[in-house]
Amino acid sequence: MVDWIQGLMDSLGYVGILLLMVLENLFPPIPSELILPSAGFAAARGDMSLPVVILMGTLGSVLGTLPLYYIGRAFGEKRLMDWADRHGKWLTLSGKDIKKADDWFDRHGSKAVLFGRMIPGIRSLLSLPAGMSEMPLPKFLLYSGIGSALWATLLTGAGYLLGENYDRVEQYVGPASRIILGALAVAAVWWLLKRRREQSGQTNH
Rank of each mutant, 00 (worst) to 15 (best):
W4M: 08
Q6R: 12
M9K: 02
D10T: 13
D10V: 02
L12D: 01
L12H: 13
Y14P: 02
I17D: 02
L23K: 09
L26T: 00
L26E: 04
F27G: 01
P29A: 04
P29T: 05
P29W: 02
P31M: 02
E33C: 05
E33Y: 05
A39I: 00
G40I: 03
A42F: 14
G46A: 07
S49E: 12
S49L: 13
P51K: 11
P51L: 08
V53D: 06
L55I: 14
M56N: 00
M56D: 04
G57A: 03
T58I: 09
Y69A: 08
G72D: 10
E77A: 09
K78R: 12
K78L: 02
R79S: 13
L80V: 10
L93H: 08
D97E: 14
D97V: 05
K99S: 15
K99L: 14
K100I: 05
H108L: 04
G109P: 09
V113S: 01
F115C: 05
M118T: 11
I119P: 01
P120I: 06
G121V: 00
R123D: 11
L128H: 03
L128R: 04
A130L: 03
A130F: 00
M132I: 15
M132P: 00
S133L: 09
M135V: 13
P136R: 14
L137A: 10
L142H: 04
A149R: 05
T153S: 15
G159C: 12
A176G: 13
I179D: 06
I179W: 14
A187V: 02
V189C: 07
L193A: 14
L193D: 05
E198F: 00
S200L: 15
